[in-house]
Simulated scan of single mutants.
Amino acid sequence: MKLASRRRRVVAPALTSLIDVIFLLLMFFMLSSTFAYYQRLDLSAGAGSAKASASPPVVIAVQGEGFVELGGQRVPVEALSGLLEAKDLPAEQTLAVLSSKGASVQDLVAVLEAIEMAGFKASLVTSSKPEEPK
């Protein structure tokens, strides 16, 4: 006697509940996580306490690609700290940092670091230098 064998149907696992669980985990981790600022750059520190000084501010124009303009002279950012120390400026001298159109945020940060290495308090002017008409 031959018994008829039943063919077992292959049943694919239902992925609907798996997608729901992954979505719930995603929502949980997004809502429970905190967003921390790893580096902060205080740009308003010198703006509120600006005093009227007798001497005009020293203008440092960030041109991008690692160069700045200091007193009409184009110098690399690496040499900026030494040039500021060589000028023998008082510690309360106002330094205005202006950015040009081609300057990146990294260029601005490098200039601000060079200013602080020279012993000055770094603050950033919020308006950029207007482009020269051609």
Rank of each mutant, 00 (worst) to 15 (best):
A45G: 10
P56Y: 00
E131G: 06
V75T: 14
M27Q: 05
K101E: 10
P90M: 07
L124Y: 11
I115H: 05
S49Y: 07
I19V: 15
D107Y: 03
V111R: 07
A14T: 05
A110H: 03
D88R: 15
T34C: 01
G66P: 11
A54F: 01
E78V: 15
P76Y: 06
A122P: 05
V109S: 06
S81Y: 01
R9K: 12
L18V: 15
A110T: 01
G72I: 02
Q93N: 05
E92R: 12
S104F: 02
E116A: 11
V62H: 02
S33Y: 01
S17P: 10
R74F: 02
E85W: 07
P57F: 08
Y37T: 14
A50W: 12
V21P: 00
I115P: 01
E132H: 07
A114E: 13
E113D: 13
K51Q: 10
D107S: 06
Q63E: 14
V62A: 11
A118W: 08
L24K: 03
M117I: 00
S44Y: 09
V109L: 14
V77P: 00
L3F: 13
M27W: 12
P57T: 00
Q93M: 13
S32M: 11
I19H: 09
D88Y: 11
I19L: 15
M117P: 00
E113A: 13
L70S: 06
E131K: 14
G72Y: 05
A12K: 14
R9A: 05
F28P: 04
